[in-house]
Design a protein around this nucleic acid. Structure first.
Lengths: 153, 153
DNA sequence: CCCGATTGCTTCAAACCTAAAGCATTGGGA
DNA sequence: TCCCAATGCTTTAGGTTTGAAGCAATCGGG
């Protein structure tokens, strides 16, 4: 006998598969960013958030959008600023707030990165059967909803 | 007109969902490990690999099992050794190799962590419909196979 | 108006992570 | 036997990440 379980083994199996596949894809993207464009995924994520917003964002808005800590964004934005991809300026109406803007150079850089990123993702996932891709996308949407309903585990 | 696409938008959408759900779960587990057990996921991963193997593992075997760099394992194992959870010893037949063993304390510690970890995962995923869980698990298996077929993007 | 709480961000210590360089050991060919 | 390439690990520099402490600016009650 294996004794009474206090948890369902199937859920752990699902989690390990989710984690495993995500890590493999993420490592390949990370490697591509480093090898072909001398940058990193976190920097790409910040540029993507700014591009998506279409307007300057506060540091706090960035950290909420990316699900990372405030201090983390400070460091990443600092290197992006050093490399000329973004500029920082206090908001006139509240000087505590630092607004981050994409420069023309940053926007052009991001366009390159996004094209490469999308191409890599497409290459990696294109071997998947269309119906598998559809059901994965739908099921992950359901999972996301389940996770939202129970915010704190 | 949007012009000819060189990639399929649906693949990127799937990737973003995969990444988003994985990050949410991972952050909660990370938080739980820190708050309830004063440890981290990478440390847990190393202990899990040793427990799973059931015998001492070389540093290189650990880094391959965890998909992380060699130097990374060096650092994590160093802190685990400092805290008395593992011991390090050169292999007699080849002194270049460092064998990592779980101590009794490390094994007991891991048992606690594993129970908590499985409980958290079970709680987070238990809201999922059984058939959704089954199809997710199966589809992720297919995705994993697809990724294995094309090792380098 | 004033002062204490709040808010937005930065700094800090500790840990994680990688690629590249370095060190020690091993093994194979001349 | 000797040497040198290959192997296993560690070190290093640079970047990512967090939580907590700290600083500056703002806001609100008295």
């Amino acid at each position: 006998m294996t004794g009474a379980r206090t948890y369902d083994e199937g859920n752990v199996r699902l989690w390990l598969r989710l984690l495993g596949t995500t890590r493999v894809i993420e490592k390949r993207l990370q490697r591509g960013m480093a090898d072909k464009h001398s940058t990193t995924l976190p920097r790409f994520d910040v540029l993507a958030a700014l591009d998506r917003a279409g307007e300057p964002l506060a540091m706090g808005a960035l950290s909420r959008a990316l699900l990372v800590s405030n201090g983390n964004v400070t460091g990443i934005v600092r290197t992006l600023e050093r490399d000329g991809h973004v500029t920082l300026e206090p908001r006139a109406s509240d000087r505590r707030v630092s607004m981050v803007s994409l420069t023309a150079q940053g926007a052009a850089h991001f366009a390159d990165l996004a094209a490469a990123h999308h191409g890599w993702v497409d290459t990696m996932l294109s071997g998947l059967a269309p119906e598998t891709r559809a059901s994965l996308t739908a099921d992950l949407g359901e999972l996301k909803a389940v996770l939202s309903e129970r915010p704190s585990a």
